[in-house]
Amino acid sequence: MSLYFLCAVLFAIGVYCILTKRNLIKIIIGVGIMEYSLNLLFILVAYRMNSRSPIIDEEWLSGALPPITDPLPQALVITSIVIGLATKALLICLAMRLYEKYGTFDITEIRRLKG
């Protein structure tokens, strides 16, 4: 329960960073923190106490070994991590293009109409 709430705290830190910071790189870092907290929540919910990692063999099928964790959230998260990297790269490219156009990462300066 407390672990889940700490995940929510991590998400809240990301939201705070997006709402109050003015630097585009800081905002991208906030988006990354939110994404990591969601991945972490999925894996925390999937964990089973005193278990093995989800790789099975005949010895496991005979019932001698402890049960394995929930593999379904792991399969959902493993795609989410790579998608997160691609979207972060796209965000960074947009930020660099904006820097070339306006000469700053400050979003209040970028808001100005120019050219």
């Binding site: 990354g32 991945n39 894996i43 999937a46 964990y47 990692s53 790789i55 998260v77 991590i81 790579v82």
Partner: peptide, 17 residues
């Protein structure tokens, strides 16, 4: 938390990021 696939992926993705 017994997710070795995710650990490998997260490690290398973080390096690239």
């Amino acid at each position: 938390l017994k997710a070795p696939d995710l650990a490998i992926t997260q490690l290398v993705v973080e390096l690239l990021c």
